[in-house]
Design a protein around this nucleic acid. Sequence first.
DNA 1: TTTAACTTTCAAAATTTCATGAAAGTTTAT
DNA 2: ATAAACTTTCATGAAATTTTGAAAGTTAAA
Lengths: 168, 168
Amino acid sequence: MQLPEAKGKFIEAWGKLGSEWGINRTMAQVHALLLVSPAALTTEEIMEELKISRGNANMTLRDLINWGLVEKQHKAGERKEYFFADKDTWNIARQVAKERRKRELDPIIKILDELSKVEGDSKDEAFKTFNKSVTDINKLAKNVDKTLETMLKAEENWFWKSIFKMFK
Amino acid sequence: MQLPEAKGKFIEAWGKLGSEWGINRTMAQVHALLLVSPAALTTEEIMEELKISRGNANMTLRDLINWGLVEKQHKAGERKEYFFADKDTWNIARQVAKERRKRELDPIIKILDELSKVEGDSKDEAFKTFNKSVTDINKLAKNVDKTLETMLKAEENWFWKSIFKMFK
DNA sequence: TTTAACTTTCAAAATTTCATGAAAGTTTAT
DNA sequence: ATAAACTTTCATGAAATTTTGAAAGTTAAA
């Protein structure tokens, strides 16, 4: 396999993975493209390579910047903006974890905390089951939350070392 | 807040979380409903409670069964089928991890392994960047894979005890 | 074997999500 | 101040996904 073909496959695979995880396909593809590009790219180049419209490219790049996965670069003496992706996978993983935690885990923990407080007749099966499920899920969510927090603070090696201690 | 309202909120929240993670909203809602139901429910009851069609209920339940999150129950002397969800959050988490690993992580690792093998001119920046990103992501994916494998084998307590060691 | 209860399928409709591109906006150079 | 280079917005349409419900299929009792 040659590089251009491999590049295409990588972009396609990353796009598919993204869409399975609630990240839009194009966003994942633009990210993939920037990940394998040694130099920062312009909007034009991204549009060209991925065959997407200007509007789409612009919005997608903005999203990627909001996710903290891509940064703008200004080149001295040039009007155009260049975009590049952080290539450090550990940073990428942490950044994604951080965003999803903020956007998804935090809100659900808030709701679960509220629902944990609901009171009812402890002889009522419906109430008992509701309460048990909600508090159990709440506990799990909080464990996940703590683990993510640790991950966000951790150095890559330390984190995986800790994880792999579990194997011994 | 009273139980019925709380139940509704829980179903809504679980549905939203599901859709943010690539699981269809209805599927997550049916799962939520079964999680808070002390007894197994019929298709009719699920249709009624969530205001969904028979076809949708049927397909959704089949999916949940395929994910290993819901089981059928036959009641002696009855024609109808009843459905209930495993209420153990640890089992739920493991089951979801197991399915997603099989459906998503395994295929991407396969592709990354292939792409890691691509050869090229080590003086070519494009090749160098491609190669580094691909192999780095591959390593990360394999770490995640191993961690999931451990999690799947682990007993609940043992797993969380190990996680909490990380905090000390 | 017939019937009725119940389940499954699937083509069409509804909804949701995503991409487009022209127009509006912004910035910099002259 | 104007023009040119470049970026952003957003109404609209296209595509993908989800839902519906009626018809077909299945099963078990009579």
